[in-house]
Each structure stands twice: as structure tokens, then as C-alpha cells.
Design a protein around this nucleic acid. Sequence first.
DNA 1: AACAACTATTGACGTCGCCAATTATTGCTC
DNA 2: GAGCAATAATTGGCGACGTCAATAGTTGTT
Lengths: 141, 141
Amino acid sequence: MRGLHADTGYLLYRLGLRSGQLFNGFLQESGLRLRHYALLRFLATSGGALQRELSTTLGYDPSAIVGLVDDLEKLGFAERRPSPDDRRSRIVVLTEGGRGFLRDTDEAGLRVTNELLGPLNPAERDALHTLLLRIAEDGLS
Amino acid sequence: MRGLHADTGYLLYRLGLRSGQLFNGFLQESGLRLRHYALLRFLATSGGALQRELSTTLGYDPSAIVGLVDDLEKLGFAERRPSPDDRRSRIVVLTEGGRGFLRDTDEAGLRVTNELLGPLNPAERDALHTLLLRIAEDGLS
DNA sequence: AACAACTATTGACGTCGCCAATTATTGCTC
DNA sequence: GAGCAATAATTGGCGACGTCAATAGTTGTT
């Protein structure tokens, strides 16, 4: 009979939970959660996005995006702007406050990842990241 | 600025979600969820366990274990037996029905993992599993 | 005998993923 | 160009989940 951790899928599930907990722990003091952080980071790389794009890229339900952007607007980290081509859409952009927040927390985020990947040396971390990326690109985002 | 998937921790979080969804999808028809399946599989390897052991090993809250074992008892896949040494404890054991269920679904579980790890060849899957196991053993279960 | 520690259980709270419905707007098509 | 399907954002609801507090019963210790 196969053991509990004999299955890679189950391992991924459990480690994903643990990773989310660690991230949320470090974000706790700022009042944000992992979802907000992911959204901010994506905005930083894209320069601005429709909420629909955020939904498909981040994999969150459109209804979830609404609340997340609401929260970020309240904190002054992002804002909604009307889309010139399509009045149904809103373009979400990072504000200067949001950029500052990312700068301040970037190092802390790395610390969390370090804690998570504790027993792995740099080469192994690279290998793991590459493998996960391959899986992620197949069917995800 | 680091990209969205530049962080291994976030990748793990997202893939963990996806893995859980896949597993739950395949379990849907049986009325169970991933948590039940993990519990059954652990029982199969251990031969029987106190609920407290299940809680620490699987990482679920003790209160969650109660409901899971309730469900499995209703389906006749497991049962609670009094512990001879300690009347506070109950020993949860797999029934013949539970063993049969595991036999029937074992192959389907492998299919899910195959789907998840689609783009990886066997050697890569081994490497990934080994790396994840190393992380898991550090602080988890 | 009294008290701290532990097991299982119940209940509550907030978050999350998912789905349905609604409103405003756009694009298609006839 | 009038009618209609499709789309974007939003609201609300439902079940599952992680977490914590509280309780009853039991054990071990001192």
C-alpha cells in the first residue's frame, strides 16, 4: 500500500497550504493577504490591467477581484481608472504608495521563501523552481 | 521588479490549490474529499491510529478529524474502537470496506497525479518528488 | 485528594472557491 | 439600425476550510 507522502500531488497540496500560511503570516501586520500581494506584484510587472485580466492571470474568480481591488484602493496601493476603449472595463493601476509597499516588503517575502525552502541548497532551489514552473505553465495561468 | 511566478513559495501555493482541485474532482463521485482520502491512506499504512495522531500527522485540526471520521464511519470505511490503555482516546481503524475503496480508487489517484505532472518525464517527476519530500520533512508532519 | 495535562467533541468566525443573477456596455447580425 | 448574444464588473449565496475557544471525560502527578 502506498504511503501518505508517496503521492506527489498530495505533497504539492500540503506544501501549498504551508506556503500560503507562511506568506499570510508575514503579511498579517500590513492588513493584506497573499491574494492582495500577488495582485500588487502582477500590477507592478504589467503596469496596469483590466480586472478581467487579473482574474484569468491570477486564477481568482472575478467576484474575488472586486473585493481585492476595493481593499487595495482603500489603502491607497492601487486605483481604478476608466478604460478609454470600453466603458464596461476598469483599468487597475499601481499607485506610488503601492510601489513603495512592494519595495518595503520585497525583502520580507524573500525571507519567507527562504524559510520554506530551508533544507535546499541554491542549486536545488533552482531545480525545484524550474520544475514547478513547467507544471504551472501547463494549464495554469 | 520580480515577476508573478518568480517566487517559488507563491508557485507552490498556486500548484497546491490546483492539485487539491484535481483530487477533489476525481473523488467527487464517491462523496468523499481529499481530506478523507488522505486519512484513509494513512490508516492503511499505520493499521490504526488515535485521532490525535491523525491530527498531527495529517496537519488537520482535531475538530476537523471528528467530522472526517464521522463521514468515514457512515460510509463503513472506518470505525472507532475504544483504546484499551486510555479511555479518553479512540482508535480509528480501516474496515474491509475502506480497504476495498482504496483498492478501487488507487489507480484513479495515480491518473490525477499523472495529469498534474503532465509535462514532466519520469526522471523529472522523481526529482520533484524528492525535493518536495525534503521540504515537507522540515517542519511538516 | 486536588490539580494540571490531555482526548475528543462542539460551536463559532472569517476566508476561500464556486456559481447564479444583475447592470451596463459592446459587438454581431439580419 | 434594431434586436440580440456576449462581455465586464458587481453583488449575493453556499459549502468547504483553517483556526480558535470552550467543554466533558479521563489520566497522571504530587
